[in-house]
């Protein structure tokens, strides 16, 4: 297994890098989009609330692979060309943002509603209160669940393998199918995933414990 890795380390490291890159990009975009929809969901405006609700329900209830394939296969025919990495990252962003929206919304609602009233009474506008009082507290609350979303994101990024996205899984499959050392090739892939996800998941558990 070690020789297999030594012979293919460049292939694996390229995959590892692409997996990290795609996960981080998708995390940033889905945080922005997810937070926006989370806020829309709790606004007093009914139209915005319904739009946010529809968005969240659609992307929560359709498999990530279907969303990613849609961007890879269908969109280039009608709209614009995009490679597997881009299509996969967009798919991951949309899919994850719906989960993040739910997480953030729960976080905002968990912040005592008295906080908002207090801030308003002290002369802050709704948006100022949201920005400076409620959201910072909400984010603290949602860091562990967000961390778990990020772990899911890293694992889910393996769908790029279907889209020729040169991620860890794709590269591992390449190694497996050229060297025929199936088990070793996939075990190395697994170890690389664990390098990212395992420490994160222990850290999130530690944070959760600390909060309680």
């Amino acid at each position: 297994m070690i020789t297999l890795f030594m012979n293919n380390w460049q292939t694996y490291l390229t995959g590892f890098w692409n997996t990290i890159l795609c996960s981080v990009l998708a995390l940033i975009f889905s945080l922005v989009i997810g937070s926006a929809f989370a806020i829309m969901e709790i606004l007093p405006n009914k139209v915005l609330r319904i739009i946010a609700h529809i968005y969240i329900e659609i992307f929560r209830n359709i498999p990530l692979l279907v969303i990613a394939m849609f961007f890879y296969i269908v969109i280039p025919q009608y709209v614009m060309k995009m490679d597997g990495f881009t299509a996969g990252t967009i798919g991951l962003t949309l899919y994850t943002s719906s989960f993040i929206a739910e997480t953030v919304r729960a976080g905002i609602q968990a912040v005592d509603s008295g906080q908002m009233e207090g801030a308003r009474a002290n002369g802050l506008t709704y948006w100022q209160a949201m920005r400076y009082i409620v959201l910072p507290q909400a984010y603290k609350l949602v860091i562990p669940p967000l961390g778990n979303q990020f772990i899911n994101l890293v694992k889910n990024s393996s769908v790029l393998a279907f889209l020729a996205g040169f991620d860890l899984m794709y590269q591992g499959q390449s190694v497996a199918s050229t060297t025929f050392q199936t088990f070793s090739a996939y075990i190395i892939v697994g170890i690389f995933y664990l390098i990212i996800t395992l420490p994160l998941s222990y850290y999130m558990r530690y944070l959760e414990k600390k909060m309680v």
Partner: peptide, 30 residues
């Protein structure tokens, strides 16, 4: 894949799991 790397080393190669997916990708302009 190996043959393309031999006969046309400059070209970029994208690999799929089956022929259906590869042809769909061709049709999508990938």
């Amino acid at each position: 894949v190996a043959n393309i790397e031999k006969y046309a080393p400059k070209a970029k190669v994208l690999e799929y799991d089956d022929y259906g997916q590869a042809f769909t990708a061709l049709k999508s302009g990938q």
